[in-house]
């Protein structure tokens, strides 16, 4: 009886373990890419800002469909940076003011702060 119990427990344990390993492997192989989105908000004429918003809209939709994960959105220019409290909707981003100048220094600092990031900017 004792041997049977041990056998049962071993089978169960190995079963769960293999499930766990499979889950980890699947998670690694088919993982949803996640990143911090850096948006440069230095002065951008309205039409060009619209293009930035369009680019963001694509990412936002993918985020909603769980195809990507935007961890957070950071707006920056030469005057400062702002980590938004929540992922903004495209309309909310459109309403944001663009002002000031681009700052390569701040961008470099942000690149080192966040391991996984993506940058969108006005061209």
């Amino acid at each position: 009886m004792k041997q049977l119990n041990r056998y049962l427990l071993t089978v169960l344990g190995l079963g769960w373990l293999s499930f766990l390993i499979a889950a980890i492997l699947l998670n690694q192989v088919f993982a949803v890419p996640n990143f911090v989105l850096l948006i440069e908000r230095s002065y951008c004429p309205p039409q060009q800002w619209q293009q930035v918003v369009q680019e963001y809209t694509k990412l936002y939709r993918q985020h909603q469909q769980l195809r990507i994960e935007i961890e957070s959105v950071v707006l920056f220019n030469d005057l400062g940076e702002e980590v938004l409290a929540a992922i903004p909707t495209p309309e909310e981003l459109r309403a944001k003011r663009t002002y000031g100048r681009a700052s390569s220094q701040r961008e470099a600092k942000l690149r080192t702060t966040y391991e996984q990031f993506k940058i969108i900017r006005c061209f």
Binding site: L75, N77, L79, G80, E82, K96, R97, Y99, G100
Partner: peptide, 9 residues
Amino acid sequence: DRLLDAIAS
């Protein structure tokens, strides 16, 4: 700078 940024935004 920080204050100006907070105001302008």
